[in-house]
């Protein structure tokens, strides 16, 4: 099918663009390693608090670092798409006699590849810091898939922002939108130990359910009452974001 071939060409081009910018590749890896160094040892004492689900704070942090890296990668994708729009290259792609959805799909597939690469590196760093999975190899595979799909979902937000605003200023500051999604969560402390408005905000943030699901797989095992809400939240979020991004893209390019 032509669209598959065209998507592949766009995918290869976007992948090459990403890999040709070493800092774009290295930066998320460095930031993940730094987070283990900055938060891991100094906050390790938190595990002594009654009710804390594990005595390995690095294992607790791994889910947070995964989800946060994936969330902020949405902001990166926004800049990638915006650069093409502002340079006029996006118009050049629209001029080609191709199915225009191949441009969107090629971009999303690269977002998935980036997410996959980053997840693998973060998990490797986590293991260097002594983190082990309660759920074994199957748990590792599940976390890799979950985080990769989540990364594609946040890429949709980036694509929507770039297409709708076409503004460098707005897109560069889109991390302001991603920040509450990543931080108003139980990233540093289990929800049971939170209180007040923050606890309410965490409860309505779908990202927290994904975070809890991933963390449960890492530190507690196959406890489905915590994992399933995460999978549902991931499925719902990704579906809604994919449909919205496709709709916005179609309106912009029709």
């Amino acid at each position: 099918m032509a669209i598959v071939r065209q998507t592949y060409y766009i995918y290869l081009r976007n992948l090459r663009t990403w890999l040709s910018q070493p800092m774009a590749v290295i930066s998320p890896i460095l930031s993940a390693a730094l987070m283990f160094l900055i938060f891991g040892a100094p906050l390790g004492g938190i595990t002594q608090i009654q009710g804390f689900p594990t005595d390995d704070y690095n294992a607790f942090l791994t889910a947070m670092i995964l989800v946060m890296t994936m969330t902020f990668s949405g902001s990166d994708m926004a800049m990638v798409v915006l650069t093409d729009i502002l340079s006029g290259y996006f118009d050049k792609l629209l001029l080609a006699p191709i199915n225009r959805f191949s441009i969107l799909f090629g971009t999303l597939l690269v977002a998935g590849t980036r997410a996959l690469g980053q997840v693998l590196v973060i998990l490797a760093i986590a293991m260097l810091f002594g983190v082990s999975f309660k759920t074994g190899l199957l748990g590792i595979v599940t976390v890799i898939l979950t985080a990769t799909i989540f990364g594609m979902g946040t890429a949709c937000i980036g694509i929507i922002i770039a297409i709708k605003t076409k503004s460098t200023q707005v897109t560069m500051n889109s991390w302001l939108l991603f920040m509450p999604l990543a931080f108003i969560t139980s990233a540093f402390m289990p929800k049971e130990l939170l209180s007040g408005w923050f606890k309410v905000a965490v409860t309505i943030n779908p990202v927290d359910y994904v975070l809890v699901g991933v963390r449960t797989i890492i530190i507690q095992g196959w406890e489905w009452e915590s994992i399933l809400p995460g999978l549902w939240a991931l499925t719902a979020m990704t579906t809604i974001l994919l449909i919205t991004a496709t709709w916005v893209y179609r309106r912009a390019t029709a």
Binding site: R13, R16, T17, S20, Q21, D84, S87, G88, Y89, F90, D91, K92
Partner: peptide, 11 residues
């Protein structure tokens, strides 16, 4: 060929 030359600068 558009007025604003639309090229892929990283390629």
């Amino acid at each position: 060929a558009m007025q604003s030359v639309g090229l892929d600068d990283l390629s």
